[in-house]
């Protein structure tokens, strides 16, 4: 059932011009930034060779491209996810899913999986660009895997956030702006609150707040460090937001 609903969401995404525009926009932007970095890398390469242990192309070109992708996802995911529930409420189609013999959990997970599958397509395209270099040079596949994992987890957390905000309103645009606001707030919180708590030597609140700062958790993975706490934080954030969405939809059935 989850995959049936996910398939429906994917179909709806591809039926709208928005998905195609976002895909094109991301691909053009990322291809440009990738090639720009590659160009810079080729220029400084002669100087790098003289270093004792020089950073490779994966570190200097691929990882920053993924960081750019993460920044673009911050804008793209709220746009892609805004319709998930808000539009169903606006068009009164939610009743189609709610009357079907599927649980609210399946509906929410189905919608999440649908959006996440679309994001994985974007991430797949982003990963394909550096992989194309594999024929000509030695790539650090470990770093590539780590940064792709990081971006996928980040995308999952973003998708869950935008799904949750979409469940709160019947206006897709409000959902998009709201989700963007939530993500931005989490980003600032991770940067400032997390750092200042750590500076004051309060490790427990700092660790707690780290759950809600997805970009902060992406950083170690982007460097090739699979920090299990960061991975758990990202998964926990996605799970929390999905649970909130389920609660919200269930509550709507009770409240009316």
């Amino acid at each position: 059932m989850i995959f049936t609903i996910a398939g429906k969401e994917l179909k709806a995404l591809f039926a709208s011009p928005l998905a195609w525009v976002v895909l094109t926009f991301m691909q053009v932007l990322l291809a440009y930034s990738f090639l720009r970095r590659l160009d810079d890398f080729l220029q400084i390469q002669p100087r790098l060779i003289r270093m004792a242990s020089p950073p490779g192309v994966t570190e200097l070109v691929v990882a920053p491209t993924f960081a750019t992708a993460a920044a673009i996802l911050l804008f793209a995911v709220p746009l892609l996810g805004m319709r998930l529930i808000a539009e169903e409420r606006r068009n009164q189609t939610m009743v189609f899913l709610m009357s079907a013999p599927v649980s609210v959990t399946e509906i929410v997970l189905g919608k999440f999986v649908g959006l996440f599958a679309f994001l994985m397509l974007i991430i797949g395209l982003v990963t394909a660009m550096p992989l194309a270099l594999g024929g000509g040079t030695a790539l650090d596949y470990g770093l590539l895997a780590s940064v792709a994992l990081g971006l996928s987890l980040l995308a999952a957390a973003f998708a869950a956030a935008s799904l949750y905000v979409s469940s709160l309103t019947a206006h897709p645009l409000v959902a998009a702006i709201g989700a963007f606001g939530v993500l931005l707030a989490m980003l600032l919180m991770g940067e400032t609150a997390g750092d200042s708590l750590r500076a004051r030597n309060w490790p427990v609140p700092a660790a707690l707040i780290q759950v809600f700062s997805p970009l902060k958790n992406f950083e170690p993975l982007a460097k090739g460090v699979i920090d299990t706490y960061a991975v758990i934080c990202l998964l926990l954030l996605a799970a929390t937001l999905l649970a909130l969405t389920i609660r919200e939809l269930d509550g709507r059935r009770l409240k009316g």
């Binding site: 429906k8 179909k11 709806a12 039926a15 709208s16 068009n91 009164q92 189609t93 939610m94 009743v95 189609f96 009357s99």
Partner: peptide
């Protein structure tokens, strides 16, 4: 329902 729950793009 009163308002048929149709997905316009299907």
């Amino acid at each position: 329902p009163e308002h048929p729950p149709l997905y316009r793009e299907f």
